[in-house]
Amino acid sequence: MTARVDHLVTSGTFSLDGGTWDVDNNVWIVGDDTEAIVVDAAHDADAILAALGGRTLRAIVCTHAHNDHIDAAPALAAATGAPVLLHPDDLPLWKQTHPDRAPDGELADGQTITVAGTSLTVLHTPGHAPGAVCLHAPELSTVFTGDTLFQGGPGATGRSFSHFPTIIDSIRDRLLGLPPETVVRTGHGDSTTVGAEAPHLQEWVDRGH
């Protein structure tokens, strides 16, 4: 059976640099009827468990360690036995939310995660956060971008641990060269495609400076 992508929206808060905001997060489940991985365990472990529907959870992959993307990860891991995977450059952010519980494994650029016969390649895309990653699944014509690339532009870089020129480099060098029909499944809001976003890179650069 071919892997599919299931989508769940959970709600909670994002907190950084002394501010807190209400947010809706996309949780992506990639797998088949027997096994899956979760991309970003946001806010509600029980809702994610229900969406898994008894499938074996192979991994909880964190696109980055802002609290709204990882707050439910330990509870989901405890309920399923699945490891939490994070790029080590985001450990300082992780520790702000979970000081007493480390991730179970590291993500590295070029690493391949396989679930339900489908491979997802880890792309290190710093800028929104130092350890931000995207996951490219060519067989699904999909890239999971977390908060690196949205419909309409790059993720925010106005807070600690973020850097605008770096996110632009990440998007240009790692994402916009993917096939234009690749669906961009984001951390918040609507999906888009690489082809829809690629022509606007210079606009984002001009807007960001």
Rank of each mutant, 00 (worst) to 15 (best):
I37Y: 03
T192K: 03
T34M: 05
H136K: 09
L86K: 01
A47Q: 13
L85W: 03
E181L: 04
D71A: 15
E197K: 12
G12W: 09
A65N: 05
E181Q: 07
H87Q: 08
T121I: 14
G208M: 07
T145I: 12
V39H: 08
T112V: 15
E35Y: 08
P138R: 06
R174F: 12
V5W: 07
L135D: 11
H64P: 07
G131R: 09
H69L: 12
D22I: 00
A73H: 09
L135E: 07
T182L: 10
N67Q: 12
V143A: 10
P126I: 12
T166I: 09
G155A: 06
G187F: 11
S160L: 00
T13I: 12
D71I: 12
T56K: 08
T10P: 01
D22G: 12
R58Y: 04
R4A: 14
T192P: 11
V194G: 13
D169K: 11
L201I: 11
A196V: 11
A79N: 08
A82W: 01
W204L: 11
D89K: 05
L175Y: 08
G105A: 05
H128G: 10
E203D: 13
P83I: 05
L86G: 00
P138L: 11
V30G: 15
T166P: 08
F14K: 07
L52F: 02
D109S: 11
V84E: 09
T118P: 00
G54A: 13
P179C: 01
H136C: 07
S119P: 08
H7I: 13
A65M: 01
S119H: 15
A198F: 04
I37C: 07
D173S: 14
L52I: 09
T13P: 00
G12M: 14
T112I: 14
D33V: 15
P154N: 02
A42I: 10
H69Q: 12
A79V: 10
P126F: 07
A42S: 15
V61T: 09
D6P: 03
A108K: 01
D104M: 06
V205C: 06
G53Q: 12
D190E: 15
G152K: 05
G146N: 00
G117C: 11
D71M: 09
G189S: 14
Q151H: 10
H188W: 12
T20K: 12
P154C: 07
D17E: 13
D90N: 09
V39Y: 06
A73T: 04
I168W: 09
V5R: 10
R55N: 07
A137R: 11
D147G: 04
P130D: 00
L76S: 00
G105M: 00
D147H: 02
F161C: 09
D44A: 14
S191P: 15
G146R: 03
Q202I: 05
D104C: 04
A73N: 03
V194S: 03
A65D: 00
S160H: 08
H98K: 05
A137N: 15
G31N: 01
A102N: 10
A50G: 05
D24H: 10
D24G: 15
G152C: 03
W94T: 11
F150P: 01
V115N: 01
V183S: 13
I70G: 00
H43K: 08
H124D: 12
A102D: 15
L76C: 01
D169M: 04
I167A: 06
G152L: 04
L178H: 13
G54D: 01
G189H: 10
P126S: 06
V122S: 03
R58S: 12
A79E: 02
H66E: 15
L178P: 15
T2I: 08
S119Q: 13
N25M: 14
